[in-house]
């Protein structure tokens, strides 16, 4: 199975990356090159094999349910491209 321009455009939208139409043919080729190479995984018999999300199978550790951080809005906002009155500023999302 190979990707076409429409699918690649859709993937770009899902990934929230603007791709201009002129870039599409090149990108389709590159992604298909990689995905074709990946297809070799289909020859492996994975019957009965559990998927492995990480190397540690133990349960994640828990900590006490107490507030141990926060209350530092200046630090949180320090690197924001736009911030005012203690908030991040974004384009209007509700008409």
């Amino acid at each position: 199975m190979s990707l076409d321009q429409k699918q690649v455009k859709h993937i770009a939208t899902l990934a929230r990356i603007r791709v201009e139409d002129a870039e599409l043919p090149g990108l389709v080729n590159e992604l298909n090159g990689i995905m074709t190479w990946i297809e070799q995984l289909n020859e492996v018999d994975v019957t009965g094999v559990e998927p492995m999300a990480g190397v540690q199978s133990r349960a994640l550790p828990r900590r006490a349910d107490v507030i141990n951080d926060g209350g530092d809005p200046e630090k949180v906002l320090k690197n924001a491209p736009d911030a005012t009155h203690g908030f991040f500023v974004v384009p209007k999302v509700v008409e």
Binding site: V8, I11, A15, E30, M35, V46, V49, P51
Partner: peptide, 29 residues
Amino acid sequence: RRRVMIGTYVLSAGYYDAYYLRAQRIRAL
């Protein structure tokens, strides 16, 4: 950009089992 798009694709509806879960199973092997 290439890798974010590949990642988005292999996690997307309809492809997750065929790519992502299969890769995780082979990782176990």
